[in-house]
Simulated scan of single mutants.
Amino acid sequence: MIKTITTRLLASLIPLFAVVCLSGYWFVNELIVFQKQALQLDQVEPLNVEPGTSIIKLAQHLEQQALITDSWKVKYLVKLEPKLAQIKTGYYQLIPGDTLESVFKRVRLGQEAVFSVTLIEGKSIKEWQQALAKSERLIVGHDDFNQVLLANGDTSGLPEGKFYPETFHYHADDNVQTVLQRSFDMMQMSLKQAWAGRDKDLALNSPYELLIIASIIEKETGKPEERDWVSAVFNNRLKKGMRLQTDPTVIYGMGERYKGNITRKDLREATAFNTYKIDGLPPTPIAAPSRASLFAAANPAKVNYLYFVSRNDGSHVFSATLKAHNKAVNEFQRKRK
């Protein structure tokens, strides 16, 4: 009798057990589908995970933003995968195509949003400051370049040319000085390498003078193949005691007064940067030189050119004599042959 009752009880429990198992399987499958569904967004959105935020609160926030539904399911997801609860604070980005799974993985691994800023070669510190001020989520002060110089023992107060042009990556709310320190280090390394490999016939006395010439080369030509020729013109002039007579230095010395043209009056004006009036080099670089310009400055081409004039297409005509130079000026600047 007892055996019969037990048999009947087991027989009745088996279907119930099967239903429970099937229900559990269905729910687990629902959770998997839930976390693999794409978030409802069509543009990059910020996600700031503040201290004390739990994975459940994070899911609720996403639901409040109408990016997901059924945030309550996250409670059960965590039971299945306890590691999901190990999230890191920080500033993240939600990207179109993201799933809840990819977002949770990102905040668990601390893969914060990465931003970038490009410091362009041939630009001045003032121009870089304007670009940095517009950078997203970057803390910028009023004297960051000089602060980096001071931190590296440079008390000159002359940052021009001492920072390397490059694209730098950073995280949200980084201080710009961390970016500039990398830029400064890269320039010091490149300058050291260029100076160490300089031509023995170079008419320069220090790495800083090399930096000055490199900055002028950077402003004079955008043609890679011309850099060492421009360098040769300047080196040859310095060896002969001739003035550099280069327009970019005049423009730099004019500052805000420069409106796109240089007049005869500007060329006659005595400023520290007017190389039509001063002997030798200007007192500082006039822009940020590229690595290519640094090495061109250190290794001028073996040519006897003393002059060059623009063809008005980005390239130049180089001449060894004043007669040939004047002919080129007439042809390309005065439009006379």
Rank of each mutant, 00 (worst) to 15 (best):
L267K: 09
K239M: 05
A297N: 11
S23W: 13
Q86I: 12
N205C: 11
I286Q: 01
E225A: 09
D201M: 10
L244I: 08
L58A: 05
S102P: 13
Q181E: 09
D143V: 02
K223I: 12
T321R: 12
S135K: 15
K192D: 09
L138I: 08
A320M: 13
N326C: 01
F163R: 07
R237S: 00
I139Q: 09
W26Q: 08
S54I: 10
Q40K: 10
S102H: 09
Q245N: 11
S231P: 11
R268I: 14
N152V: 14
L138Q: 08
K83V: 15
S315K: 09
H169W: 14
P159E: 02
R8W: 12
T99F: 00
W72C: 11
N146S: 07
V20P: 05
K79Y: 08
Q147S: 15
D98M: 01
K3R: 13
K323H: 07
F34E: 04
T53H: 04
L267N: 06
S12W: 15
K337F: 08
D247A: 08
K88S: 10
K302P: 15
I262L: 07
P248V: 03
I14K: 02
S102G: 13
V107Q: 11
D228L: 08
I56V: 06
P207K: 06
P165G: 08
S231M: 08
V148Y: 04
S124W: 06
V49S: 05
R268Y: 10
K200T: 11
I212C: 03
M254I: 11
N274F: 08
K259N: 12
L22T: 03
H169I: 14
P300T: 03
A18F: 10
N235E: 04
D185Y: 02
K223G: 13
G157F: 00
G52P: 11
S319H: 03
N235T: 10
A270F: 12
I213F: 01
V309Y: 00
I139E: 06
T53Y: 00
N274W: 08
E50C: 09
P283I: 03
L22A: 10
T321A: 12
S290Q: 06
A297M: 06
K88R: 05
P46G: 14
D143W: 00
S71I: 13
D228Y: 05
D313P: 13
R257P: 11
E331T: 15
L10N: 03
G157I: 00
H171T: 08
H316I: 07
D173G: 14
S231L: 05
R137T: 15
E209W: 01
V250H: 03
I55C: 04
G253L: 07
P283Q: 03
P51A: 10
T69G: 15
L211E: 14
S319P: 00
F27D: 02
R243T: 09
E81G: 10
V317S: 03
G314Y: 06
T271C: 05
P15N: 02
G157W: 00
H169L: 15
I120N: 13
V329E: 02
E45C: 09
D154V: 12
